[in-house]
Amino acid sequence: MQPFRVHTGVVVPLDRANVDTDAIIPKQFLKSIRRSGFGPNLFDAWRYLDHGEPGMDNAKRPLNPDFVLNQERYRGATILLARRNFGCGSSREHAPWALVDHGFRAVIAPSYADIFHNNCYKNGLLPIVLGEGEVAKLFDATAAFPGFSLTIDLERQTVGTKDGSLAFRFEVEPFRKKCLLEGLDDIGLTLQHADQIRAFEAKRLAEQPWLA
């Protein structure tokens, strides 16, 4: 996993509440057995004017000019600004895969659905929670200044503008922070405790043999 330390990038605003993972990456693209290549179909139904299917040449498809991701001023954005309950619905990890594949490094929203939030951390995508009011300020700033960008410092748990005109602190669980800062592989970490797992398992299956 790619470590996350300090990141500066352009912010793109997605002004909708309850954006679900079906919207982030529609089901027809879930048939892939790979982890990569989902970026061109991120927000497919909103981003293109035609109906997308796997195997199409996305470069030739008609873009929806009204959708923010297609607007020149947000080109190259790496930080997605969203409204509450972002990532609700299906558990598909294809959603963070698509966001990462497209180039996003962080999402900022007032709240996330649990599974999506968890999936982000597994893929080096930082899901930052800020207050409704703080998020509203960022939406305003994004609308006011073309090319508006933010700097995220995970170590210090801050997000703000370079000139310091806007600066917010965010919370992150210490364990997750450590994994993200160091780009640690969860499985490798857990397997360091293999003996403990084995002992727990042996006792449990001896006491409740119907679980085996």
């Binding site: 982890r35 558990s91 598909r92 990890e93 963070p96 599974i115 968890n118 999936n119 597994k122 893929n123 669980e173 364990f175 969860d186 499985i187 857990t190 397997l191 293999a194 797992i197 398992e201």
Partner: peptide, 20 residues
Amino acid sequence: WGIGTSEVEHVLATQCLLAK
């Protein structure tokens, strides 16, 4: 509870999951 694919791999490999 429902999990993502990284966690599916985590359960396959370790029979455990990290949870709060």
